[in-house]
Design a protein around this nucleic acid. Structure first.
Length: 783
DNA sequence: CGTACCATGCTTTTT
DNA sequence: GCATGGTACG
């Protein structure tokens, strides 16, 4: 590697990139160039340290990030080759030479790098090794396994609750049961282990549902998202040989967004790094490294069991555990190359309100910039009007601004509607990023069900989904009798369906339809090994009559669906192009199951982007509108009585602010439609925490007064009644708390049971402010 | 067996 | 206010 290559980096980035063996934690603030550090590091490992690309494993948070990383690495190598071989920059070479160069790089280097999400990488491992795994009840899977998405998993849980166990759906809400199961899996607990932890009846019932759920998954030769990670972990624990193989293979492991890993993912990394030894004792770092990049302040996925204390524990687990100034196993990237100083200061001050974090501030490298602007709207329509009018004005007055430079970020998907209406009215082009997943559409799920049924004969759930889609006259009673036979004989449904004599006796008038269906599945299953994915998809679409049926309907909706099916076919072709070495249908199905809607958003757009704050992570926009800053919406009402959850919401807000490069607009409405009703709304707690001097606003009072640091007004402190929901709190009230002592209310957010109090406690060193839920019974008012 | 209409419950966030 | 799912009827 040439030195000028590394000269693109600041000293901290350089330290991260040049690190070779051993553990390293990189604390990377928003916009601090961490993707650059990651890609350069991989390039440096290969070029400088002669690491075989096969020995490198890089974990990203999204498929899109993985794809980008691959492209950037490929580009780095191509750039270098261009200079070396032709003495010219890549761009100045003729197109065909560029292509040739890139394809050479792909074949010799990037093809062998394992870069992807935990899910995608684990899926790949499982396709090698899942048949060597058996769980403690003897459940087994084959490599043709199906991946059930969240809605598949939930329907399965629901079916078990209602039909298998005859439980009350109201008492055992499928959603929360599924959540409990997911929780258990992310802690690595099997149904039996989970049961031991359950003191009450409800918990034991859930563990029973969990157990049946695993039976059903195995029966269908299917896994859920959690299993994708958990099974490799269990397999590595039970099979030393397999573990040793992957341990030896992945000598250099990189993990991006480490703050959003969960326990199971951590276990996986640890098993791979230490080959099963404990992390603290492991010291054989010859030709081996673990390099994690993250930012505790951007941890926003705890609802998905992500646990940022894993990041905070890295120094203890793998590192030298020394203080920040002396450590050789941690680097902080704090220079921010994205946003103006005003925006960064706003972000820094907001996040300082969190108690659980690694000390870090974003240092500006660009100019002061414009102040942020806060707009108080009457309602969500007014809010959308403001946003759209402001965008139009900016777009008209600045020739360098086009629609692609604007983003509207919100907390919940439901908020997009008002903006869409107004954007349409003013003819502003926009797109919703990461809304309904392409692969969640009904027609797509139908086609995928055909494909899954073909690949995986045990996948009864997919089989049932399409046995009568399109209509073949196979009704409920027919399906029931077929299923009954399958259960009584103890053989998979497919065995019954594919046996003509059985079908004829069981299905009566519908037999013809069932046999026709079985023949289609059978025909393409036989072709699986011989033919590439796209041919099978094309054939299935024809033979099943699915496309014909859509065309026959003649409605706009059907036309739309047809377009989507067409799009799916394109996705298959694209998959084949990108995966020359594995054009199988199995491979495509895996990639489809793990795809998200974010994956296909092109980097360069010419339309306004609308998305949730979660979807915005990792992106940046010159102009950002952060909307709906209202108590109960953002922060979400579900987090109001939980300080840890409020901190996560605050991180989410921090993520939103730090997406902005040049200008930041924030808005909140005084009332808002919720489930069709108008509800009054009060400004978000986070607005109060943003420094006023960095923000303009349309009303003087639109931002609540900043926290005062001066002495509180003295009132004689007398204990009165306990805090209750009806109590009327107001700013300036003196209160006493059993744990924190005497303080003064500095802000009241919301009212009644939804209220949250901000209290400044007297004589609490280091604790400037504390957010307390009103349900906190330890709080009493002083009169 | 398929369709049409009605009721319910929902809003966090997603690989 | 809307999407989903269940029921009643043809």
């Amino acid at each position: 590697m040439t030195t000028d290559f590394l000269s693109h980096l600041n000293p901290s980035q350089r330290q991260a990139v040049e690190h070779f063996c051993g553990p390293l934690l990189v604390i990377a603030g928003a916009g601090s160039g961490k993707t650059r550090a990651l890609t350069y590091r991989i390039a440096n490992l290969v070029l400088e340290h002669r690491v075989d690309p096969e020995n490198i494993l890089a974990v990203t948070f999204t498929n899109k990030a993985a794809k980008e990383m691959k492209e950037r690495i490929e580009r780095l190598f191509a750039e270098r080759e261009a200079i070396r071989e032709h003495g010219k920059s890549l761009e100045s070479l003729p197109g065909y030479v560029q292509t040739k160069l890139r394809s050479h790089i792909y074949k010799t280097i990037t093809k062998d790098l394992w870069i992807g999400t935990f899910h995608a990488l684990c899926c790949r491992i499982l396709r090698f090794d899942i048949e060597k795994f058996q769980d403690e009840r003897g459940r087994k899977w084959t490599k043709a396994f199906s991946i059930f998405d969240e809605s598949d998993a939930q329907s399965l849980v629901k079916d078990i609750i209602i039909n298998q166990l005859n439980l009350d759906e109201k008492k055992f809400d499928p959603r929360s049961v599924r959540y409990a199961i997911s929780n258990a899996k992310n802690k690595g607990l099997s149904p039996q282990e989970y049961e031991k932890e359950q003191p009450n009846f409800r918990g034991r019932v859930i563990s029973n549902i969990y157990s049946v759920y695993q039976d059903k998954l195995a029966e269908n030769n299917a896994v859920d998202f959690d299993d994708l990670i958990l099974i490799p972990v269990l397999l590595f624990r039970q099979n030393e040989q397999i573990r040793a193989y992957w341990h030896k293979r992945f000598r250099h492991i990189l993990v991006d967004e480490y703050q959003d890993t969960n326990r199971t993912q951590y276990d996986l990394i640890q098993l791979l790094v230490t080959n099963g030894e404990s992390a603290t004792k492991f010291d054989d770092w010859n030709y081996r490294s673990v390099f994690v990049v993250g930012d505790a302040d951007q941890s926003i996925y705890s609802f998905r069991m992500a646990d940022f204390t894993i990041l905070m524990g890295f120094q203890h687990d793998f590192g030298d555990g020394l203080p920040d100034d002396d450590t050789r196993t941690m680097v902080k990237l704090q220079e921010n190359y994205r946003s103006t100083e005003n925006i960064l200061q706003l972000a820094n001050e907001l996040i300082e309100n969190n108690t659980e974090r690694i000390d870090k501030i974003l240092k500006p490298t660009r100019g002061q910039g414009e102040p942020a602007f806060c707009y108080r709207a009457q309602d969500e329509i007014d809010e959308a009007e403001f946003v759209v009018q402001r965008m139009r004005k900016l777009e008209q007055n600045n020739s360098d601004l086009h629609w692609g430079k604007f983003a509207i970020l919100y907390r919940t998907n439901a908020q997009s509607r008002a903006f869409e209406d107004i954007l349409v009215r003013w003819g502003v082009p926009y797109k919703i990023v990461g809304g309904l997943r392409f692969y969640d559409r009904k027609e797509i799920k139908d086609v995928l069900a055909y494909l899954r049924a073909i690949v995986n004969p045990a996948d009864t759930i997919s089989l049932l989904r399409v046995i009568n889609t399109p209509r073949r006259g196979v009704g409920k009673s027919t399906i029931e009798s077929l299923q009954k036979a399958s259960i009584e004989l103890g053989i998979p449904l497919w065995e019954i369906i594919s046996d003509e004599t059985s079908v004829k006796t069981l299905a009566g008038r519908s037999a013809k339809g069932v046999i026709a269906f079985a023949n289609i599945i059978q025909k393409y299953r036989e072709m699986l090994d011989a033919v590439s994915a796209n041919e099978i998809v094309q054939g299935v679409l024809e033979d099943s009559g699915y496309v014909q049926d859509l065309k026959a309907q003649g409605t706009d909706e059907a036309e739309d669906r047809f377009q989507n099916v067409q799009e799916l076919y394109n996705a298959v072709l694209q998959y084949e192009e990108e995966n020359e070495d594995d054009k199988s249908l199995i491979g495509f199905l895996a990639s489809a199951s793990l795809a998200s809607d974010l994956d296909n958003t092109p980097e360069e757009t010419t339309t306004v982007s609308l998305m949730t704050l979660h979807s915005s992570k990792g992106l940046e926009f010159p102009i950002v509108f952060l909307v709906g800053l209202e108590q109960g919406l953002f922060p979400s009402y579900r987090s109001l009585d939980d300080p840890a959850a409020i901190e996560e919401e605050r991180r989410l807000c921090y993520v939103g602010i730090t997406r902005a490069k040049e200008r930041l607009f924030i808005s909140h409405a005084r009332e808002r439609r919720l489930y069709g009703n108008r509800e009054p709304a009060s400004p978000s707690l986070f607005l109060a925490e943003m420094p006023r001097e960095l923000m303009d606003s349309n009303t003087a009072t639109s931002i609540p007064a900043k926290w005062t640091k001066g002495a509180a007004q003295t009132k004689s402190p007398i204990l009165v009644n306990h805090a209750d929901a009806d109590a009327d709190w107001s700013v300036g009230d003196r209160v006493i708390h059993s744990q924190f002592g005497v303080g003064e209310i500095t802000n009241v957010f919301g009212s009644g049971t939804k209220a949250t109090l901000a209290i400044r406690f007297d004589g609490l060193p280091g604790m400037k402010r504390k957010i307390l839920p009103i349900s906190d019974r330890a709080l009493q008012s002083i009169d």
